[in-house]
Nucleic acid binder design. Structure first.
Lengths: 121, 121
DNA sequence: CGGCAATATGTTCTGCCAGACATAACGAGG
DNA sequence: CCTCGTTATGTCTGGCAGAACATATTGCCG
């Protein structure tokens, strides 16, 4: 095997506006596991400001908000995925899996033509 | 159908360096059809500077240069795809086709959850 | 009731990358 | 031998996305 890791980054555009990509995917995922926009942002080295902006953008783009948030209360508040949020995340993950499987042969073809990466830092 | 156009943008990363994406794909394609880096750049509203930089990057990343260029001579010079260049382009196009087919159901799932875009400018 | 941690949102600062501009070298052909 | 269009490469600059900073608000819990 010539190269260490091959990753596919997939972005979905509807019309000409970007709706979903790796960043929002991971953000959604981290919100689900941490129950907090702030914690999710911290986990990916992203300012809360930006994390929140992405959430806002998603909530506006979809028919129903993907992230539900409450403020005040125990622990200051929190956030969680709505059913739609879980749906979108699941669909996106499935998409990646499907694509990675389907793409394997062509990816290998391209990888074979790459210069050897073992001698790169 | 709720939304007009759905497009998938796919980027390939090997290790952590980006190697190939939509921009380089189209550039390669246009170089093949125009026989010139400058013309290819113009065709996609890209400065020659940038087009050339992308070519340089690709040529460096792959085992053999994807684009062969000559300067001076009839018409000032020109560029063409090397066999490896044609291979990579063909593989990338095949990749896109494969993926678009495989992705259709999940994309539809996500699209269904989008807010209606017919009432957006 | 006051502290805490998170959501929510405005304002300002900044690093960096894309594009603009400049210039050299090149080589066939008139 | 001069023109022309292209490759090749350096430098400068403006815009803007994202970070940094600032503040208000909310509601449980000790």
């Amino acid at each position: 095997m010539v190269q260490d890791t091959v990753t596919l980054r997939l972005r979905l555009l509807f019309g000409d506006r970007l709706v979903f990509g790796p960043g929002k995917g991971e953000l959604l995922s981290r919100i689900a596991e941490t129950g907090s926009i702030a914690a999710a942002g911290r986990a990916m080295g992203m300012s809360y400001r930006r994390a929140w902006a992405l959430v806002e953008e998603m909530n506006a783009a979809f028919r129903a908000p993907l992230v539900l948030s409450v403020r005040g209360g125990a622990g200051g508040g929190g956030a969680a995925l709505s059913p739609e949020g879980r749906d979108v995340l699941a669909a996106y993950r499935a998409l990646l899996a499907t694509i990675e499987a389907a793409a394997a042969p062509e990816v290998a073809r391209i990888a074979d033509l790459l210069s050897d990466m073992s001698e790169r830092k």
